[in-house]
Simulated scan of single mutants.
Amino acid sequence: MAGSRPSGDEPSVHEPLFFLSYARPHESEAEHPREEPDLFLTFFDDLTQRISTLLPGERPGDLGYAASAVAPGQSILQALAMCHVFVPLISPQYFRSRFCGLEWSAFRKRVGTRDLALHFVPVTWAPVEQADIPPDVLEINFQTPRQGRADITEGLYSLMVDRAPGSDYDRVVRNVARTISEAAREHPLPAGTPAALRSLPNAFRAAPTRLRLRIVILAPTRDRSPEGRTAVEHYGPTQTGWAPYDDRWDRTLAADVKTVADRLGYDPEIVAFDDVAPALLAGTLAGAPTILLIDNWALLDTGWRDQVAAYVDPAAKRPAWETFMVVRDEKDPQTRERGADLRAAVDETLGASLQAMQTVVQHAASGNGPRERFPSHFSTVAEFAAGLFRFRRSQ
């Protein structure tokens, strides 16, 4: 058995146990191609390593195939014709990908009348509403063997913040590895003929519409900074130029949240607080789940603090899908130095609203945790707001 995690020239492919199908990042995310690890392939590596422990004598590099191209090449077609298990990384974005839909169709055609649940082993990358799952996918009963797995409700992307042995992520990897190794050993698929993907139907042709997620950024700018905040390199000419983390002044928070929101399957709308404050406070913005991202330093500015206080005031009776999240970098020297003042400003302005939140959302929205936890925390707040908005629309 031989497969690959391809890079550069297309490798030869013989008989991988599994084919990892995932939605490639949009071209807009390619502006900073070296800034973040490819978490899809991190999961692929972890999974092949775990399978290798279940199948002694097999090399991890020979066990699976992860397609990295944005269009079908010969190695992808060959891997689909030879693999025994198809592992789709389910997300709203996955079901919008034409190439993923073609990969699904190619493997589905090859499985034929066999038990589909033995050869399709889906992993939830980001949660998907049941109503948004394409009909051709619903024919596969894959819920029962995944019952209780943390990725179903949390999404693997959020779980990857903790990859330690015994973590929820580690347990998902173990479960998937065991399922793949058992299926390949006990129910091997006969090799097929590489399909011409473009001749196949897209299994996801009834793709769901992306839900708009409004992200409002409240942060100082180079022209307006609270007294005592001299680290102007964190800020840009507008509020969306804010780069909060001390180790990455060249990476704005707007770029981070766009990447996370897009991978969760939302259509992110990122705006500066000062540009929308009147409409936001008046409640006249078009309805959409909304997250106000607040630099804790901005709350030392009395004007901004008063506006935030009005935004979270219960008397304003704002929809529950309009919420907020504090962002701070504990590694920043000035933030550590003024820590007491910054926390006092947060407690005075937002303390009551934080206390009213569900515990998991409260922790995510409070600004606790290092940069590494920001994607997970933002995902929690975003999913909370979007879930409430969807519930309102279903009434």
Rank of each mutant, 00 (worst) to 15 (best):
A255C: 03
V257W: 05
K258G: 08
V260T: 10
V260H: 01
V260N: 00
A261M: 13
D262T: 15
L264T: 03
L264R: 06
G265Y: 05
G265Q: 08
Y266Q: 09
P268V: 14
P268S: 14
I270Y: 12
I270R: 12
I270K: 11
A272C: 13
A272R: 07
F273Q: 08
F273L: 12
D275W: 03
V276G: 02
A277T: 12
P278H: 08
L280V: 15
A282Y: 14
A282R: 15
A282L: 15
A282E: 15
L285K: 04
L285M: 14
G287I: 02
A288R: 12
P289G: 03
P289I: 09
T290W: 03
I291A: 07
L293N: 03
L293I: 15
I294C: 11
D295T: 11
D295R: 08
N296V: 14
A298F: 11
A298Q: 12
L299M: 14
D301S: 10
T302W: 05
R305Q: 13
R305G: 00
A309P: 00
A310N: 02
A310M: 02
Y311N: 04
V312A: 09
V312P: 00
D313S: 09
A315Y: 02
A316T: 10
A316S: 13
K317N: 13
R318A: 13
R318V: 11
P319S: 12
P319W: 05
P319C: 05
A320K: 11
A320N: 06
A320D: 13
W321A: 07
W321F: 14
E322L: 09
E322M: 10
T323G: 02
M325G: 00
V326C: 08
D329N: 07
D332P: 00
P333S: 03
T335M: 03
E337M: 08
R338T: 01
R338D: 04
D341K: 06
L342Q: 02
D347T: 12
D347P: 00
T349K: 01
A352P: 00
S353N: 09
S353W: 04
S353C: 09
L354I: 14
A356M: 10
A356V: 11
M357L: 15
Q358W: 04
Q358P: 00
T359A: 15
T359K: 12
T359R: 14
V361I: 15
V361S: 05
Q362K: 11
H363L: 13
A364S: 10
A364V: 05
A364L: 07
G367N: 10
N368V: 13
G369N: 06
R371E: 11
E372K: 07
R373H: 05
R373N: 06
R373Y: 03
R373L: 12
P375F: 06
S376L: 02
S376N: 05
S376W: 01
H377D: 15
H377R: 12
H377V: 04
F378C: 02
F378G: 01
T380W: 02
V381Q: 04
A382R: 01
A382P: 00
A382T: 03
E383Y: 01
F384H: 10
F384N: 08
F384G: 00
